[in-house]
Design a protein around this nucleic acid. Structure first.
Lengths: 344, 344
DNA sequence: CTGTTAGCGCCTTCAC
DNA sequence: GTGAAGGCGCTAACAG
């Protein structure tokens, strides 16, 4: 025996290490490592001895030791604001699935539940090889840049900058198409509900709304600032009912906003889309359950997550970061809240 | 210098270690470790030197090395089937939030995206101190038991067994209450839609349905087997419309099922709850958007996740596992799909 | 095909 | 208050 490692009886259940396995099988630790890694060829007989020993001792390797030795964590970090609504969940599913294929663990950080997100992200950096961060808004830009100096980082649904790669879904053109669709129903007082300054995603959707007006030589109104929650939607709807705004169409920054506004207006006796057309963004599950069905835009969220995981892996592999944002196409989903007739 | 560690110029950005920091600051690595851990007292002057060095080198500690030394991963594993629908997402949020408070990272594994979940779970065990697994059904029971021998495990929404602790939301009594509520509307041909054998949760809900009938001296029908997806709901609704089943009330195993059934029936001209009452389980967002609003049961999902994280932490801390399942109370949410009159 | 031997980067007594 | 030195468990040459 090389060192005096505890091969004591009760080291059995508690802390089986590669050493215990080795001498339980009567081989060297190198051999154990070999059969477990499966890289080098090992004689079938010894192989079996080792496997048996592993089984009998219930050996569970210590990941940290391996990581330290191979100088890789074999894990990707993902930083999301939260998980309510289908958007982030779907993104995470896509990310996790791809990471799994690449044999990478995923460690998750939700910033909304943190009091000190900077510390959380630093701590995360400590145990992963690369990090995907949602939106540039979520965590301070300089923190991201700092990280970038040490580990590959990709921003999801954000702009590329300073050698920080970005992946996103297409927003501008689809927004232009969606807004155009509404305008082509003859609506002339369309309002954009959402805050263009809350991130590049919404910004682009607003820009698309502007472009659609421009395309038709129409004037576009200023955006009605609102965050992306049901509460904000309800509040806006109430102001609308109170006569603070006038509109025959609403292009909402996301579905949750659209849905809560729609329901509030309907409960107050308004006819959608008769009195007012409403469209959203995301195509959440509820969008196809409400009446009228919500016209919206579907994003390839799952693919977006997968793409992020993919890029992370390639960056870790040494590939240089891309300087352009990678765009995934979105798709207009026309139902009837926009004023289209129901398909019977 | 103790060992010949690369203090070379370009070790700067790439791989700052505790050694680089140490000699950049002109102290020993022990001191660096001390100021970073903040445990022992260090002279304010040296403390600052170290901090400066850390800053200048952009030092990011290697988690693996620390884990190896302290013999703790400081991470919790969470195994979920998937993330669609609000249930799992909420659970995960609760788990993550509590884990964060306890300074534990969370590494997530989604089994539905895995071809080899056993390998995934083994691999997970490699890098965490403890694991929470959703439902006993998801992963083979013997795998769980195997793990249990090495690391603390808690099952979420499952039964406790073999020293494996369980946490769950109350199902039986609330189901009894819900079913009773429907029956008390005078419905006499109530059907349970869902598969009692798909897990203890559903089993308990079905048992509650049975109990409610028994309470009233009524006969209960056999359950209509269905999984918890929209597709299954639609399929069942079609069979119902085709006359394969007869019912004046439907108690569905979850909301997604209930919602898809309700919509399909309505689209076919049926009146809910006039012709048929429908109730679900979970209180997803859509449940309050549809018309009629879906009567359902709200579970404290967030708390459930938090509880799991909590227990994991205490088990790691050496506390003995509890032998009884920890139940969190649920709440009946009455809307109008059950036959109640709308509140105006 | 298998064993020996250095580390991987950090924490932690134990001296000073 | 600070430094020296020995692991933590595993991988990866390097010899046989």
């Amino acid at each position: 025996m090389a060192k005096q490692h505890p091969a004591s009886p009760e080291a059995r259940s508690a802390g089986a290490t590669i050493y215990s396995v080795a001498d339980h099988a009567g081989v060297s630790i190198a051999t154990v490592s070999r059969v477990l890694q499966g890289a080098t060829v090992v004689a079938e007989a010894t192989r079996q001895k080792v496997l048996t020993a592993v089984e009998e001792l219930g050996y569970v390797p210590t990941g940290a030791a391996r990581s330290l030795a191979v100088r890789h964590h074999e894990a990707h970090g993902l930083v999301l604001p939260e998980l309510s609504g289908p958007y982030y969940a779907e993104l995470l599913m896509g990310f996790e699935a791809r990471a799994a294929e690449l044999a990478q663990s995923v460690v998750l950080v939700l910033t909304n539940s943190r009091t000190d997100m900077a510390a959380a992200v630093r701590q995360l950096a400590t145990r992963v090889d690369a990090i995907a961060v949602f939106g540039s808004a979520a965590i301070p830009a300089d923190l991201v840049r700092l990280l970038r100096a040490k580990k590959p980082v990709v921003v999801i649904a954000g702009e590329p900058q300073d050698g920080i790669e970005a992946v996103a879904a297409e927003n501008l053109e689809s927004a232009r198409e969606l807004a155009g669709h509404v305008l082509d129903h003859g609506r002339r007082r369309a309002l954009f509900v959402g805050d263009p300054d809350s991130g590049p995603d919404i910004r682009n959707r607003y820009d698309g709304y502007l472009a659609a007006h421009r395309d038709r030589g129409l004037d576009a109104a200023e955006p009605v600032l609102a965050r992306l929650s049901e509460a904000d939607g309800t509040a806006f709807a109430q102001r609308l009912l109170a006569g603070e705004h006038e509109a025959d169409a609403l292009m909402c920054a996301n579905d949750e906003l659209a849905l809560s506004i729609m329901t509030t207006l309907q409960d107050a006796g308004r006819d959608v889309p008769g009195d007012i057309a409403i469209v959203g963004w995301d195509d959440v599950m509820t969008a196809r359950y409400v009446r009228p069905g919500l016209t919206t835009v579907r994003q390839p969220v799952h693919e977006l997550g997968a793409l992020a995981a993919d890029r992370l892996h390639e960056l870790v592999g040494g590939e240089p970061p891309r300087t352009y944002a990678q765009m995934l196409p979105t798709r207009l989903v026309v139902r009837t809240s926009c004023g289209c007739l129901p398909v019977t």
